[in-house]
Design a protein around this nucleic acid. Structure first.
Length: 884
DNA sequence: GCGGGACGA
């Protein structure tokens, strides 16, 4: 059974909450060790700085080269923050370089052999010349850097029995510094960009036209070759002036001073005073900060330095937990304070803050929760909504709320940070707030479009990947696909084709990645590519924002993703393969330009891009079930939801549907006011139907079982990992839980081993106490459990029809039991379901049998006797499918 | 006969 369950092992850091746990009580030994570590670190840094200064003077870097070196060192900042799992980059870069060298040498040899006696055109001769030139340059550099740079093996910072947080972040920071130092020594930084460009150009030409086709081995790949047009270049951001502070400070005395010096090299540093003035003059400010500008780490510090934290905290929201954690860690290092003291973070299950905390990083959903306890955010003097362009459900609601409180709290400053495209829109929404632009640092990305539309994008993506592998210079490939199944198919086809090509091409390592993949398999994509090989990462949208993979130089973008859409009328959710937006396409392209110039191959035409794609993705708030949003807003005292100031209002039908549901659950009274039940429900960070189920469990004395079920239901369907090759095995394992056909909800009770579910359960247990519900276990009374479930889910009832399908009772539509359900073969006469999904059919997921009379008993306001009178019962054999 | 991705005092 192991391996079937997806171990949701998020890296959890030990809580270090209260301020009193280390000030006085830190043991002497620890202090000594800390001291030793600090000294060692400082010593290392001094040595490195000295070496780098020497090197720099020797090489007499031109201003431009220096600029390039800084740019490179900065580009790594974000990566370090985002990928703590990163292994030593230095080593990887070295290998990559050697690989490049060998490949070019081989290329030159091959070509000399192949073109012997063939008359080359002038252009071809010139390209050959470039290659030889590049080869010489690379050779020279490899020899030089070999003795100049020290390579370090990755530190193991995950120890058994817990994660040493200090160690872990210090490793990340150290690595960041190593890279910065290492890159500064590279006198060929600028050269390399040119080389990459030229290599790409040269090999593309040779590969597709002449050389490779002469060899039969490559025929297969090139039979169905796809023609691309290089239509545009997404420019790297330029910054006009060079900042020399970094080098002036290179003899810095301590690690902290060095960090401070590094801060000054960020693009944002030059705008510091201007920014502070703008914040002083305006209450709301829209900040456009490109990737790598340092806005997330620096702005809160600037505000702190300017004294804003004297009046209250500076809060900065992130859409993702890891981002909140790692940014906070970085900032605490820069400020030289312990994480959780002056700088802290707050995410679900983990509050790493104390009374001292003045800079607080948190997930956007967390700030939303804080609103419930502190509707005016009195504790904050500044709120910064970062990555606002991602438009998560939580940010959209935050917008409305902060805009509202800003009106009666003139001392509260709001910073909204977004990408370029949306800035105007944000500004308009916040009453024409000024826009403050900060340039970032990014490498140029060449965009290629197909000449003609591709009918089969999956096949086209595979062909393109192989095409790149054979013809383009080293650098890993990232392919965006829509889902697990597609990724598995692509992996199979690719493996098959590679086998067909035998050993004539370099090794191609295929790495699938999607959220449902077990963590240990996910780690594969972060392993550095071995020498002589190339990695191709087949990813879902997860790689678009949530994780950063190093070494990606080519991106293949078929232009599709799966998107959730919600039909408020039927209450049905579905995942549709939809064309992506322009914003999304650009985000994808940008993934190739993180560590060097990159290329993006779009499997659609330039015409498609400009005319068929939407500018922005439809914000989540317009395509989701709003029941818990409505409950939350109601409990914040916002009554007129239809006129609430949403930036992009959700369809009113969705709002009305949610209000109707909350009324049915008796969370709202007839006037639309929150009831006592509703107030208790709002305490739970769950869907209202689940909250209601918990609240109702008090009456049926089975709260213990119910919160287990609720936590399992709320983590959704990602429990069962079901890889293609082990489907049968996985299904058998799952069926074991359904022994006795007790219904899907109760079957969940038997699955207790998942960490995330446990976390949620623990949280819910705490909340039970808060709303004064006793934790009572009643393990053998399934009827009580089922009645509790029914109390929350009675609007989701369905009745069996003669043909084996079901019909929902209240808003009649035909549905089916999902094949993964334990009741799929049993077909009870009456069921409640957790959710409706539209996939190949209209399915009810998570189904439990119920007695129709319960509906009238539990929800007399919702069901009348005539609704549940079994008109078909006379035609059906008695007793069959009757509730037990 | 079946899964985009985040997120929650």
């Amino acid at each position: 059974m192991a391996g079937i369950f997806r171990g949701q092992e998020e890296r959890r850091v030990k809580r270090r909450t209260s301020s009193d746990d280390d000030d006085g009580s830190e043991s002497e030994e620890e202090m000594k060790r800390d001291q030793r570590e600090r000294e060692q670190l400082e010593k290392n840094l001094r040595e490195r700085d000295a070496a780098s200064t020497r090197k720099l003077t020797e090489q007499k870097l031109s201003k431009k080269e220096e600029e390039e070196a800084i740019r490179r060192s900065m580009a790594m900042e974000e990566d370090d923050i985002h990928t703590l799992r990163e292994v030593s980059r230095q080593e990887y870069l070295k290998k990559r370089e050697q690989k490049k060298l060998e490949e070019i040498r081989d290329d030159i040899e091959d070509e000399q052999y192949l073109f012997e006696g063939v008359k080359l055109s002038e252009k071809e001769q010139r390209e050959m010349g470039y290659k030889k030139q590049i080869f010489e340059l690379l050779k020279k550099r490899t020899e030089e850097t070999d003795d100049a740079t020290e390579y370090r093996m990755p530190d193991a910072y995950d120890q058994e029995g817990g994660v040493n947080q200090e160690k872990r972040f210090s490793v990340a920071i150290q690595r960041y510094r190593d890279n910065a130092a290492g890159e500064k020594m590279n006198p060929f930084a600028e050269q390399e960009a040119w080389e990459d460009h030229q290599i790409g150009k040269a090999t593309l030409k040779f590969g597709s036209k002449n050389k490779k086709q002469m060899s039969d081995d490559y025929q297969f790949v090139f039979e169905d070759q796809i023609a691309f047009i290089n239509a545009s270049v997404m420019d790297g951001d330029k910054f006009d002036e060079l900042q020399t502070e970094l080098h002036e400070q290179s003899e810095a005395q301590s690690a902290l001073e060095k960090l401070q010096a590094d801060r000054k090299t960020l693009p944002i540093y030059r705008y510091r005073d201007e920014l502070l003035k703008a914040v002083h003059d305006h209450q709301v400010l829209v900040i456009v900060g490109e990737t790598g500008s340092g806005k997330t780490t620096q702005i809160p510090q600037y505000l702190h330095e300017a004294g804003y934290t004297k009046r209250g905290k500076v809060g900065c929201t992130q859409p993702r937990r890891v981002a909140a954690m790692s940014v906070a860690a970085r900032v605490s290092q820069e400020m030289g304070v312990k994480l959780g003291h002056e700088v802290g973070y707050s995410i679900r299950f983990e509050d790493c803050t104390s009374e001292k905390t003045v800079l607080k990083y948190m997930t956007d959903g967390m700030l939303l929760r804080e609103f419930l306890g502190e509707p005016d955010l009195a504790g904050y003097s500044v709120v910064m909504v970062d990555e606002a362009h991602e438009r998560t459900l939580s940010t959209d609601i935050l917008f409305g709320l902060v805009k509202d409180i800003a009106r009666f709290r003139p001392d509260l400053k709001l910073l909204i940070s977004s990408a370029t495209l949306d800035a105007e829109k944000f500004s308009d929404y916040f009453d024409s707030a000024p826009i403050f632009k900060i340039p970032g640092r990014r490498y140029p990305v060449e965009i290629h479009y197909t000449k003609a539309p591709e009918a089969d994008y999956l096949d086209a993506a595979i062909v393109t990947a192989l095409q790149i592998h054979v013809t383009q210079s080293p650098g890993d490939i990232l392919v965006f696909l829509t889902g697990q199944e597609e990724i598995e198919t692509a992996e199979e086809i690719m493996k098959h084709r590679i086998r067909g090509l035998g050993t004539k091409i370099a090794e191609l390592i295929i790495c699938p990645i999607y959220a449902n993949l077990p963590t240990e398999l996910q780690a594969k994509i972060f392993e550095p590519t071995p020498e002589g090989a190339r990695k191709v990462v087949l990813a879902t949208n997860i790689a678009e924002t949530s994780l950063t993979i190093d070494g990606i130089k080519y991106v293949i973008d078929p232009g599709f993703c799966k998107m959730k859409s919600y039909n408020p009328r039927t209450g049905m959710e579905s995942l549709l393969v939809t064309p992506i937006s322009k914003a999304s396409a650009n985000q994808r392209a940008g993934r190739s330009g993180r560590t060097g110039p990159g290329k993006c191959f779009r499997l659609y035409t330039a015409y498609n891009y400009y005319n068929d794609l939407d500018d922005n993705t439809v914000p989540e708030i317009q395509r989701t079930n709003l029941a818990n949003v409505v409950l939350m807003l109601k409990s914040l005292g916002i009554h007129d939801l239809l006129h609430f100031d949403f930036m992009d209002p959700p369809p009113s039908e969705a709002l009305l549907k949610s209000l109707e549901l909350l009324f049915a659950l008796s969370a709202l009274n007839k006037l639309g006011e929150l009831t006592k039940v509703g107030r208790r429900m709002a305490e739970f960070p769950l869907d209202p139907m689940l909250s209601k189920m918990i609240v109702a469990s008090e009456k049926y004395k089975c709260s213990d079982e119910i919160i287990s079920i609720a936590s399992m239901l709320s983590i959704g369907n990602s429990i069962f990992y079901r890889p293609k090759d082990k489907q049968v095995h996985a299904d058998n394992a799952r069926m074991n839980f359904h022994a006795g056909n007790v219904g899907d909800h109760i079957a969940l009770l038997k699955v207790r081993s998942m960490k995330r579910a446990r976390d949620i359960r623990d949280q819910l247990e705490g909340l039970l106490e808060r709303v004064e519900i006793e934790l009572v276990s009643n393990p053998n009374d399934f009827e009580a459990v089922k009645k509790s479930i029914t109390s929350g889910f009675f609007p989701h009832s369905a009745r069996l029809q003669k043909n084996g399908s079901y019909r929902t009772v209240k808003h009649p539509q035909t549905v089916h039991i999902h094949p993964s359900s334990g009741l799929a073969q049993v077909l009870p006469r009456w069921v409640v379901y957790h959710e409706l999904v539209l996939t190949t059919k209209e399915y009810m997921r998570q189904v439990t049998e119920l007695k129709p009379e319960w509906l009238v008993e539990i929800a007399p306001h919702y069901y009348q006797l005539k609704d549940v009178e079994d008109s078909t019962s006379k035609k059906m054999p008695r007793g069959e499918g009757r509730a037990s």
